[in-house]
Amino acid sequence: MKLKKLILYAFIPCTLGACTNWLDVAPDDQVNEETLFSKADGYRNALNGIYKNMAETQLYGKELLYGAVEILGHSYSSGYLALSDNALYNYNYTDKNAKSTIENIWSKAYTAIANCNSLIANAEEADPSIFSDNILEKNLILGEAYALRAFLHFDMLRLFAPSKKVDDQKTYIPYYDKKKSTYEPHLTVDQVLEKVKTDLLKAKDFVAAFDTLDTEHKYRLRTYQRIEGGSYNSLYTPEDLFYAYRGYRMNYYAIVGALARVYSWAGELENAYNAASEIINATSCFNFNSSSAFSSNRKLYEELVFVLSKKNTY
């Protein structure tokens, strides 16, 4: 099982804001939720908290990057694995270590999805005037939350359901798209894919209004601002860090890239080609290097579409 390498964990400090403030809020406490979402900073912190959770060990901080998925895909020789990883390597899913890893992935992903739903439900009702950029910022937050919800569901589908080529039309995973829902029916592969595509297309429209609005916003998607946070052109460097480092967020091209993955997995190859081409042809933002560049440019920043930050990942 092989994940598309659209995500790299950069070894730099988290620039996404005060994530820990949001994590201190008890999600089941209605009073705290109302307090959190009474101001624009609450929406920002809630969104940043989702990104922070996604970078933890159970998800893209290990298991869905170089951990469980690569063990399942036999990317490593079994002789180099810890004893606790042997069960996964041998597809012994009833082993206690394998079960623990799988349950942690599932639980962490659906917790992040639940937080996306809470953010979406509150943001949809929010008065645009509370945000610094009014409706533009409101829609940006909504778009990123929709995209993250789809992104996470898609990876759960890839892990816990058969591929399209061997789809048996049975039901496999639920798609949670309602706030505080405690039960959703398991759906077929096709049903989940349709919901993923719907969320991503909605997200694309919301985020496009911000990332492709004008020259200033388009400049923020270039490597020196998207990933490196530099001030190549100070005229286009936002003073508000929430609008900076778009590569660490579900930016417009990250959503297009996610659509390319979904279309490819679904067998919609023309749509996948068109989505991938949009990124490849965005030469002002991305430069796909030859392999020789790796020796002096280990992270290949010019190629990165969407990254997460985890400071203690080497």
Rank of each mutant, 00 (worst) to 15 (best):
F286L: 01
N287Y: 10
T283S: 13
E268T: 01
K299P: 00
E268W: 05
A282N: 08
S295E: 08
N271M: 11
C285W: 06
F286A: 02
E278N: 02
N289M: 11
S290Q: 06
L269H: 14
F294M: 10
E302F: 03
S292V: 01
S292A: 10
C285T: 03
F294A: 12
A266S: 13
A276E: 10
S296H: 05
K299L: 14
I279S: 01
S295Y: 05
A276Y: 00
L300A: 14
E268N: 14
E270I: 08
S295W: 03
N271H: 06
S292N: 07
S295Q: 07
L300K: 01
E270L: 04
Y273D: 14
N297Y: 09
S290M: 00
E303R: 04
S296E: 10
N274P: 04
L304H: 10
S284V: 12
N281P: 00
E270W: 02
E303D: 04
L300W: 07
N289Y: 08
F294K: 10
I280F: 13
Y273E: 15
N281V: 00
N281D: 15
I279Q: 05
I279T: 07
S295R: 02
A276I: 03
K299M: 14
G267H: 09
F288G: 06
C285L: 05
N297F: 05
F286N: 03
C285G: 04
F294E: 07
A272L: 04
A282Q: 09
E278I: 01
E270T: 14
A275P: 03
A275H: 02
N287Q: 12
E302R: 14
F288L: 06
Y273V: 07
S296Q: 06
F288N: 00
F288C: 02
N274K: 11
L304F: 03
C285R: 08
S296L: 07
A266Q: 08
F294W: 11
E278K: 04
L304E: 12
A282E: 08
F294T: 10
S292M: 02
E270R: 06
E268A: 07
Y273A: 13
G267W: 09
N281Y: 08
N271F: 00
S295D: 07
S277T: 12
E270A: 09
N297V: 02
N287E: 13
E302M: 08
R298P: 08
S291G: 01
I279K: 01
Y301G: 12
A293G: 02
F288P: 01
N274G: 01
E302S: 15
E302P: 09
S296Y: 02
S296K: 07
I279F: 03
F288T: 01
N289D: 11
S277L: 10
N297W: 04
S291T: 12
A275G: 00
R298S: 12
L304A: 12
I280E: 13
S290T: 14
S291L: 10
N271K: 15
N289W: 06
I279Y: 01
